[in-house]
Design a protein around this nucleic acid. Sequence first.
DNA 1: TGTACATCAGTGAACGCGCGTTCACTGATGTAC
DNA 2: TGTACATCAGTGAACGCGCGTTCACTGATGTAC
Lengths: 205, 205
Amino acid sequence: MPKRGYHHGNLKTALLDAALRLIEEKGPTGFTLSQAAKEAGVTPAAVYRHYQGREDLIAEAALQGYDIFADLMEHAYQSGQPSALAAFEATGRAYLAFARKFPGHYIAMFESGISINRTPELAQAANRANGVLERAASDLSQHIPEDKRPPASMFSAHIWAMSHGVVELFARNSPGRASPFPPEDLLESGIGVYLRGLGLISPDE
Amino acid sequence: MPKRGYHHGNLKTALLDAALRLIEEKGPTGFTLSQAAKEAGVTPAAVYRHYQGREDLIAEAALQGYDIFADLMEHAYQSGQPSALAAFEATGRAYLAFARKFPGHYIAMFESGISINRTPELAQAANRANGVLERAASDLSQHIPEDKRPPASMFSAHIWAMSHGVVELFARNSPGRASPFPPEDLLESGIGVYLRGLGLISPDE
DNA sequence: TGTACATCAGTGAACGCGCGTTCACTGATGTAC
DNA sequence: TGTACATCAGTGAACGCGCGTTCACTGATGTAC
């Protein structure tokens, strides 16, 4: 870990890490470039060697986040194969696990106001992540009689919304709004009820 | 509408309205007291005649929001009586309607990081709103056989999470993340599936 | 191995800016007589 | 109705601060010969 001397050696990464910590702590609007620089042990001006500016740092955090997120979702999806149900449920769990493990990334992705269409890579990474969930939903909905089958994109939007809601309301340390249940249980049971509603789990399971 | 002269006459309200507009536009951390004062046509120092400072303005917005919110929920709940199902569904719809109609309030309440326990009145208003949803859930869950009945607080947390998720992901103009469905439909259908999963709606309804 | 030199990562000072808050003040309002 | 005076809402200047960004610079690194 060579951190001494005039050259940092690892500044780009160190800045991104500092930014993630700060975004997690202060929110995307409260995050400042100067503070990130300070945490990395460097002058604010040095940041401009590696990023175009404040916005660019946030966008980079979001991009990295979507990549990790998509990988995790992909892996969860695969891990449940060949059962469409197991794959789907693993994907749901992976969502919450990601939000818990990478809160800075999560916030940069979903709460920073950064447009998905800022750069083609960002759009691509975001779509990849979204695609996994939609594929899992689509696979699973094959088991529903066609005339009662909701569009996979609606199905996945429902699950996404519930997951996001659980994260924002109960998994974040919202001051004074403690959940009566662990977020993991809440999401698991919520998805369970939902799947039962689609006839994908028998009522007694 | 007397706005001329040295005395504003209606400054407290005007400031709160300006704050709500700005919170909606810039987010809770992007909101500034100075700008709110400017919008109300007044010096920043004048704000201190009516509020204790920046934080207090946000807290006031949240408080007003919880009051309106609780009233709307209450009204929706009553409007569906005596049917527990109708009351519950109306409550869900009221949630989204509130978020759409009072985005500034919504953000101040749920995204500003203001603690519910900042003042007793704030805590009370928040609990009143939450209580309506929980009561609606509790009423409705009487129709579930006792041994299969989830706690009402879990039930209501699920619905709250899905509602909040729909608002955040699909009802807000998140740049580049357009929903394929109107948020209202998304929430209505999501809640429908969920209630079917609890056995509260017949599969063919 | 030694030297000259190009490359480039990070410095430090400076900029203009808007912020939240304070303070002594002033102008308008409303009340007592 | 008129006047004196208390109340108080809003002013304007000032404060110290941290921000994002720019610029000419300097010190370290690495490469060519």
